[in-house]
Design a protein around this nucleic acid. Structure first.
Lengths: 198, 198
DNA sequence: AAATACCTAACAACTGTTAGTTAGGCTGAG
DNA sequence: CTCAGCCTAACTAACAGTTGTTAGGTATTT
């Protein structure tokens, strides 16, 4: 009867990612997920032990995909400054096109327990975090790489997080939501600070 | 019988702010709130029409307080650069000492509907947003104030948002959570960019 | 025959909310 | 001053709906 779907488990995860990202863990019921998958609620329990397990599988899936895509930019042979520029652009692009990932990330920052945050930090982000840390240290050997990397992430991700809010603040233009525009702004700021003393 | 509390309504709001910030709207039941207030669930409905109304009253209360505190720094008669420095420090301090406010803000960015976001932007943040915009325009007349102000907020608030996560990332030190340390890092970055070419 | 992937039906717990009641304090009339 | 009437702020009890989850049954495939 089911022609398209050959892997229900994967479908469940994909839909769960979408729904959990949209509305948060508590606001999505197993019935909501089942309905969208086209399955009865009880059938979810054939594939996953419980709701928590399904949620965990979803964030693992969503997060591990991203990390690998980013890695590519950081492994190129380029001068540090250019590499940073490409990283900023890639990260902005990624954050822009995969909203569920961003929202899940935000939600984890808010509600993720210690164990989950530790897992995410060590298994998913550490490698990328360290690589960018090395990068900024090349640009300024005296800087605090930990703080600097967080700042880079701040600039990119917060611009994304606040997108639905920005349009109500003064001076908003359509360009402010475009990937290249944001990436360029961030990169310039990272290089020169606010005063554009070229 | 109730000796301490003379204003139950205010107590309800205070506790709601705390609980909603901690766990999010859907994760806090009216029974949870009532219990902590020391009241039966039904009694909440004497003071507030329903859960939504109570939530709205809570965020309004939490947010409007903050805006006024910040305004003071921006109204001083100081050179632009120093004023920006003081703003960054004040914002960092505020974000650091009022965790519920930060968390509510984050939650609103995720789940706030258009109407609420518009209200927050216009009635609560616009004045401050514009004042900081004027400030950066003084520092660099050619810049895009909208983008620049968002970037300033990014740097401060994201450092706060990710506090529970940072400790699992490499290079973390205790200082990274101290108000002055963060504020100084952010201000330096805003002035010079990453390369500290003094 | 066994395993897979789904189903129906139901469970206990919890949810926001309401109807109706009660106890204490204040006010104005007798 | 007293007492009826009203307001305030709480209460008890219950409602209907939703929640995560489970036990047990049923086709289809291997």
């Amino acid at each position: 009867m089911n022609v398209i779907k050959e892997n229900t488990r994967q479908t469940i995860i994909d839909i769960s990612i979408k729904l959990f990202a949209q509305s948060g863990y508590a606001n999505v019921s197993v019935r909501d997920i089942a309905k969208e998958v086209g399955i009865k609620p009880a059938s979810l329990y054939y594939h996953f032990d419980n709701k928590q397990t399904l949620y965990l599988a979803s964030i693992k899936e969503s997060f591990s995909l991203k990390a690998s895509v980013i890695a590519e930019v950081l492994n190129r042979q380029e001068p540090a400054e250019l590499k940073l520029k490409h990283y900023v652009y890639k990260l902005t692009e990624l954050a822009s096109e995969d909203e569920p990932f961003c929202r899940l990330m935000q939600r984890e920052m808010l509600d993720g327990d210690e164990q989950r945050l530790k897992y995410l930090a060590e298994k998913v982000f550490q490698e990328q975090f360290d690589a960018v840390g090395d990068l900024v240290k090349e640009i300024d050997p005296q800087c605090d790489p930990h703080m600097s990397v967080i700042s880079i992430l701040s600039l990119v991700l917060y611009h994304m997080e606040t997108r639905p809010f920005q349009m109500f603040l003064s001076g908003y233009k359509k360009e402010h939501n475009q990937v290249d525009f944001i990436a360029e702004h961030v990169f310039k700021l990272l290089m020169n600070g606010l005063p554009e003393s070229k």
